[in-house]
Design a protein around this nucleic acid. Sequence first.
DNA 1: GCGACAG
DNA 2: ATCTTGTCGC
Length: 232
Amino acid sequence: MDPITAPWPTTEADALAEQERLRPLVSLTGPGPASGALVCGVDVAYDDDRDVVAAAAVLLSYPDLTPVAEATAVGRVPFPYIPGLLAFREVPAVLEALAQLPAAPALIVCDGYGQAHPRRLGLASHLGVLTGVPTMGVAKTPFLFTATEPAPARGAWTPLLDPASGDEVGRAVRTRAGVKPVFVSVGHRIGLPEAVEVLLALTPEFRLPETTRRADSLCRRALAAAVADPVE
DNA sequence: GCGACAG
DNA sequence: ATCTTGTCGC
């Protein structure tokens, strides 16, 4: 998991071409983390006015979710927000944070999508191919896809469908009884049923995975600190 | 052409 | 993502 060295795409056309290049490298099957393995949550926060991005990577043991380590990275915003091209905005800082972790995770959980993406290469799949590490995406909204409402019980789910192709690109999963579902999709090297099982293990208490919650709060703190003391 | 659109 | 008060409830 090394930081970026090759030139990063600057234009929309280059980014689309890069997605085409990486798409065939994605693997949609795999077992999910073993008991005792490390799972990693990553997230990114921005201050677009100051052109600052802060990423966080948190390591938790699985399935007990004990915090093991964390890392952050701060940099310039490398790409504008364009729906479908989120990875080009988030991945460089995430790779820098991952590179600082003291151990390699067995799974990375991203905030966003993997296969639930117009070209089947969302953030989670993109990061998975670049790192070789299994990844999955957990998002709060269905983006371009549709799902019926899952039953109210925790653990209930419905397929997340691509209306154009009819493909199941992920699942809408109820992680807390009676609370809005989240939308899981495979990133790389894990199957969809396995990703759902991991999601439920990561949400013993709250709607969002513990990995995401911890990474989210850490990257916000890192951003606030970076903006408060610019590089001295 | 216009609007919608992960974070 | 981010701008933002109070409020209800565990």
